[in-house]
């Protein structure tokens, strides 16, 4: 058991060296490589998942922000639209009122004008009628200065309006 046996030592060394060389080439190297490859895969997969998660979170935040912005925009548009409508309504109303007033005043002016014109015409007609009537009454007896005097007298007697 404790006796020294160089042959056994040498056999051990030879065997061990062969085993190391064979296993190193055909077992450990492929195994360690496979292990490292798998570890790298897992690490990469985890990192990708992490990145994807971050990306998803970012997109979600973006979407939320966009939605909030859109909501705000809509509210703003509605508010602005209302304001604009109000303004337009007021403007249109004001314009319509103005127009109505204009039309009314124009109509009144026109009426006034027509009335004056009618009065003037009436007065001329009356004067002509008076002349014709006087001429009929007096016939051709009167000379021109007398005739003129009478006409003026008649005109004087006519009502002032």
């Amino acid at each position: 058991m404790l006796e020294i046996n160089p042959g056994l030592i040498i056999w051990t060394i030879i065997t061990f060296v062969i085993v190391v060389l064979v296993l190193g080439k055909f077992a450990w190297k492929p195994m360690i490589n496979a292990l490292q490859a798998r570890e790298k895969n897992i690490y990469d997969a985890l990192r990708h998942a992490e990145e994807a998660k971050k990306e998803a979170e970012r997109v979600l935040a973006e979407n939320k922000a966009a939605l909030a912005k859109a909501n705000e925009e809509t509210a703003r548009l509605i508010r602005e639209g209302r304001e604009l409508a109000e303004q337009l309504k007021n403007e249109i109303l004001a314009k319509a009122n103005d127009n109505a007033k204009n039309v009314l005043s124009q109509a009144q002016e026109a009426i006034q004008r027509e009335k004056e014109a009618a009065l003037l015409q009436l007065r001329n007609e009356v004067a002509d009628l008076a002349v014709i009537a006087a001429e009929k009454i007096l016939d051709e007896s009167l000379d021109d200065p007398k005739q003129k005097k009478i006409v003026d007298k008649v005109l004087q007697q006519l009502p002032k309006n």
């Binding site: 058991m1 020294i4 160089p6 056994l8 030592i9 051990t12 061990f16």
Partner: peptide, 9 residues
């Protein structure tokens, strides 16, 4: 369990 083998190792 033999000292020569462990000596080789």
């Amino acid at each position: 369990g033999n000292v020569n083998v462990t000596a080789g190792l």
